[in-house]
Amino acid sequence: MTGDMNDQHALVTGAGQGIGEAIARRLLAQGARVTVLGRRAEPLQKLVEQHPGHCQMVLADVADEAQVRAAFAQAAAVHGDIGILVNNAGQASSAPFMKVDAAHWQQMLAVNLTGTMHCIQQVLPAMSAAGWGRIVNVASTAGLVGYAYVAAYAAAKHGVVGLTRSLALEYARTGITINAVCPGYTETEIVRSSIDRVVAKTGRTPQQAMAEFVKSNPQGRLVQPQEVADTVQWLCGRGASSITGQAIAVAGGEVM
Rank of each mutant, 00 (worst) to 15 (best):
D4G: 11
N6W: 11
H9K: 02
A10T: 12
G18Y: 02
G20Y: 05
E21S: 09
A24P: 01
A24L: 06
R25D: 13
R25Q: 15
L27M: 11
A32M: 08
V34H: 04
V36N: 10
V36L: 12
R39D: 07
Q45C: 03
Q45D: 15
L47C: 02
L47I: 00
H54I: 00
L59V: 08
D61R: 03
E65C: 08
E65D: 14
Q67M: 09
Q67F: 04
A73N: 07
A75F: 01
G83Y: 01
N87T: 09
N88K: 03
N88G: 05
G90A: 12
A92G: 12
M98Q: 11
V100P: 12
D101H: 01
A102L: 12
A103G: 06
A110C: 13
N112A: 06
T114V: 15
L124C: 10
M127N: 06
A129P: 03
V136A: 10
L144C: 08
G146D: 12
Y149Q: 14
A156H: 00
H158I: 10
V160F: 12
V161T: 07
T164W: 14
R165V: 09
L167F: 07
L167A: 10
L169W: 03
E170S: 10
G175H: 03
T177A: 11
T177G: 09
G184Q: 01
Y185E: 10
S193N: 14
D196T: 06
K201C: 06
F213C: 09
G220T: 01
R221Y: 05
V228N: 09
D230P: 12
Q233Y: 14
Q233F: 08
Q233C: 14
C236Y: 08
G239C: 05
A240E: 07
S242D: 11
G245E: 12
Q246E: 14
Q246L: 11
V255P: 14
